[in-house]
Amino acid sequence: MKRKLHALAAAALLTASSYSLAATVNIGGLNVPVGPVFTVASLYENVITEVGQELSGVGEVTQINGMAISELCAGCELTYHFGGYTVTDFTATTIEFSGGWANFYLGFDADNDFNPFASGSSAEDLAAATNGTLWLTLSGHQIDAAGNTFAGTGTDIGTPSAVGFGAGLADVDHTGMMFGNTAGAGALANNAFDTNAIPADFAGNADFQLGSSFSNVLLPHPNECPGGPECLAGSVDIRGVIPEPETYALMLAGLGVVGFVARRRSRKL
């Protein structure tokens, strides 16, 4: 399994090295660098204790390509909510998941309010993480022959003392309905990140490579643990690609042509 996780990370790094960081694309008010995009985020998730359980949680993107979110948009936050990762197998040192989805939300002004260490509960964190504009919707991408989409290694997995690391792949989900997601379509950044730029051994190339760390330290609501929804904390790195400005413009123009042709056909019918 360790070889699998290392291969996923290496594939993302090799892909990222073939692009430049010459410009940004404004998506809903957030200026995202073109080329390889390396995102760092906080992570708060539940403790898994048996096969069949669902991993879920929330977090906040803190940096993109080494720049704080506040440098990329004024008075905003980029938060996320994930779920649908179903445990298919685990031991004290390994864990595997199938399915999975993640929704990102861009919040300004009153919706710039995610702060787990100042909130009263995990329920307040979830509300704050999802009250912005739907910005990106992802679904898990197959990483092995068994159909898993995410895998981890560590110690004491299956207990509140779990510590470890994980890796997986994800695709842009234009429907926002994969693997039990209910966010729906229309996320602002979906078209920009739908590049299939991350090499994958199964089901074609992916749009994102995911990595995570987790432990039971720095919990925002320890009184809710060990059975609460935020009883492991850590970080996530998310690697994707936004095409260079010329390619991105051509892609948007192509989408416009498709829409124009579809409207003409509908009128004729």
Rank of each mutant, 00 (worst) to 15 (best):
E244R: 08
P222D: 09
A146C: 01
G256F: 08
H221Y: 05
Q63P: 00
T133L: 05
C225T: 10
L43V: 10
V87H: 00
P199W: 11
T15L: 01
L252I: 14
A110K: 10
T247M: 10
I95W: 00
L8R: 03
P226I: 05
T130F: 05
V257W: 12
N181C: 14
P36K: 04
L169G: 00
G234P: 04
D144E: 08
K2G: 08
G66P: 08
T159A: 07
A249R: 14
A127M: 08
L134G: 01
L8W: 05
V32F: 07
E124F: 01
R267S: 12
S213H: 02
S70F: 01
C231L: 09
A200P: 02
D111T: 11
G166Q: 02
Q53N: 09
I27A: 03
L14V: 11
L136M: 13
G57D: 04
T195Y: 01
A189G: 09
I64H: 00
L14T: 12
A11T: 10
G259D: 13
F179L: 09
S20D: 15
L210V: 10
D111S: 15
E54N: 12
D237R: 07
S121V: 06
I157P: 00
A74W: 02
S121A: 13
H6Y: 13
S139W: 00
F104P: 00
S213M: 11
L210W: 01
E124D: 15
V217Y: 11
